[in-house]
Structure formats: structure tokens, C-alpha cells
Simulated scan of single mutants.
Amino acid sequence: MKKIIAPIVLLFIFVFFASSFTSDKIILSNKTKKTFQDTLAVDSALLNLKYRPYKKAVHASYYHDRFNGRKTASGKRFDNSKLTAAHKKLPFGTKLRVTNPLNSKSVIVTITDRGPFTRGREIDLSKKAFMDITHAKGRGYLNVNLEIIKE
């Protein structure tokens, strides 16, 4: 009898979970639901942007968690869960596409702060931006390519 019940229970669990995932919805959280069409609209909008190469193979790092909530040089509060970055010379509000050439992942960040002030580093990314493109989660630096988004 136990040999018959176990497969039936597994089948029930499979059917239950398979029916909860529909082909047109991705459930991101209890508060936010996003459809595949919304995702495609965002992705196609990013594809239509024009990029101007800025620098290749520059050294990037990310902000430490202790900077969360502090004011940046632009006057905004820093949040490590947003897609922002610090650069020494680019104007505040500049949007950059930061690409990891090792895995071709890229992210679009906005310049909101000055820095990094460590010799040899070109850009400081928020932790979210860095983790979205990195190939080695345990390292705090990465070589990236920078492109300015033309608006």
C-alpha cells in the first residue's frame, strides 16, 4: 500500500506546483507581479538605446555595506540595493552600461557619487550592480567595459 501512496503524493505535489506557474507570469514577490510582455518591453527599450564606448578593461569595485544611508556627493542617499555608481569625472546623472567581458553580463547604472579614491580603480558600483554582472561572487573587484548611454 505504501508503494502506491508515495507516487500518488509526488504526482499531486508536481501537479500542484506546475499549475501555480503560468506561462505568462513571473512572480517576483507578494507585492509585485511582472508579465513576460513587461519584461520584453523593458529589454527591447534597452536594446534601442545608443551607447558610446567610454573605456575598456577598467578596474571596478563595489561599495561596502557601511555606506548605506549616507549622503553621496550629489546629495542623494546611497542605497546598495539600487543600480548606482561613483566616478571621479563623469557628471551626476550620467547613465553608463557596465559590461563584464568574461561573461557578457551588463547593467545600466547612474552616477550619483564621486570616487573611487583608490589608485587604479575607475568606478565604484553599488553592491547590486556588481553582483548582477560578476562571475566570482567572492571577489570585490572586476575588470569591466564602460559605455555612456546617449539620450
Rank of each mutant, 00 (worst) to 15 (best):
Y63H: 09
Y54L: 12
T134E: 02
S104N: 05
N68T: 13
R114D: 13
S29V: 12
K34T: 15
T39R: 11
A129Y: 10
R121G: 09
I133S: 11
I27E: 13
S29W: 13
T35I: 14
G69K: 06
N145I: 09
V144I: 15
L28P: 08
I123C: 00
A18E: 09
L125N: 09
K137I: 11
L83C: 08
F12Q: 04
D132R: 12
R119A: 04
K33G: 02
V144E: 05
F67C: 09
R52L: 05
T35V: 13
F36N: 13
S81N: 12
L28E: 07
D24N: 15
K127S: 10
L125I: 07
D113N: 05
N30E: 15
A129M: 05
I27A: 10
F14K: 03
L28Y: 04
L83E: 00
N145C: 01
R97S: 11
K25T: 14
V107C: 03
K33N: 14
R97C: 08
E147N: 04
S19Q: 10
R66K: 15
K3Y: 12
K33A: 14
F14I: 07
Q37R: 06
G69E: 07
K3S: 15
K95H: 14
F67E: 02
L96N: 03
L146S: 01
K55D: 06
K82M: 12
P116N: 03
K137A: 13
T110K: 11
K89I: 10
N103A: 06
Q37P: 06
P7L: 04
K82F: 13
G120I: 03
L90E: 07
P53I: 00
A129S: 04
E122T: 02
K95M: 12
P91W: 09
N48A: 14
E151A: 09
G120T: 07
G138S: 14
D79I: 08
K33E: 15
I149R: 03
F92D: 09
N48K: 15
S61I: 02
R77T: 14
T35E: 12
S44G: 10
L46S: 09
H135R: 11
V58A: 09
R121T: 08
T94M: 05
A45P: 06
D24T: 13
T94F: 03
F16W: 00
H135W: 10
H135T: 14
K127L: 07
K25W: 12
V107Q: 08
D38T: 14
S104G: 06
S61T: 07
F17Y: 10
Y62C: 00
A45E: 13
Y62M: 06
R121D: 00
K127G: 04
K137M: 07
K150A: 06
S126N: 01
A18C: 02
I5C: 12
T134G: 08
F130G: 08
T118C: 05
F12R: 02
A85F: 10
F21P: 03
H135L: 00
S104C: 05
N30V: 12
Y51P: 12
A86C: 04
L11F: 01
K55T: 05
H59M: 00
M1E: 14
H59I: 03
M131T: 04
K82W: 09
Y54D: 06
T39F: 07
I26Q: 09
D38S: 13
T112Y: 04
A41N: 15
I5Q: 08
R70C: 10
G93F: 00
P101W: 07
I13S: 04
L49I: 08
V9K: 02
I8K: 10
V109S: 05
Y62P: 03
Y63N: 07
